[in-house]
């Protein structure tokens, strides 16, 4: 499918559940972050990794890879912060219950379990709520 051209923030796009679309979606956001002079660390690490995690969680666990369901991405950036919202059509999950520390020695060799940890570590704030779907909101402050 064709994604919208780089036309700046705000971004509001809905895509089918297809993990191959994650990379171009993330590219769409990070290019605009660079144009709006978000820090290189944010553009090259924090935003792409955290947003990839949110989108893959929405597609794999939220929508359970059901290609008939869609994922919506909303993104806005102002002088204070970048706010990313990823909305899926699944049944949601209890984010607060996910407290496993994947950096502990007993979990270090696990293949999975780092996604939420990375979102929480790389973003200033991670929230989950319901608003016409299950929303994960990632907030990163400029300074």
């Amino acid at each position: 499918m064709d994604l919208p051209h780089d036309s700046g923030f705000p971004i509001d796009v809905r895509v089918p559940t297809d993990v191959r679309l994650i990379e171009p979606l993330v590219g769409l956001v990070t290019r605009q972050c660079a144009v709006r002079q978000l820090s290189p660390r944010a553009c090259n690490l924090r935003v792409p990794v955290a947003l990839t995690e949110a989108l893959s969680n929405a597609m794999l666990y939220g929508n359970r890879e059901d290609r008939s369901l869609s994922v919506r991405l909303r993104a806005r950036l102002d002088e204070v912060s970048l706010v990313l919202e990823v909305v899926d059509e699944g049944t949601g999950f209890d984010m607060e219950a996910c407290t496993i520390d994947p950096t502990g020695p007993e979990h270090l060799e696990r293949e999975d379990g780092r996604g939420l940890f990375l979102m929480r570590t790389l973003m200033d704030r991670v929230e989950r709520f319901t608003d016409g779907g299950n929303v994960v909101r990632l907030t990163l402050h400029r300074a």
Binding site: P48, T52, S56, L108, E109, E111, D112, G113, G115
Partner: peptide
């Protein structure tokens, strides 16, 4: 390489094992 997500890290862990 640009960036790696948790799935990519997980594959590296799995392959190393």
């Amino acid at each position: 390489t640009g960036y790696i997500d948790s799935s990519g890290l997980g594959v590296l862990v799995s392959l190393a094992k």
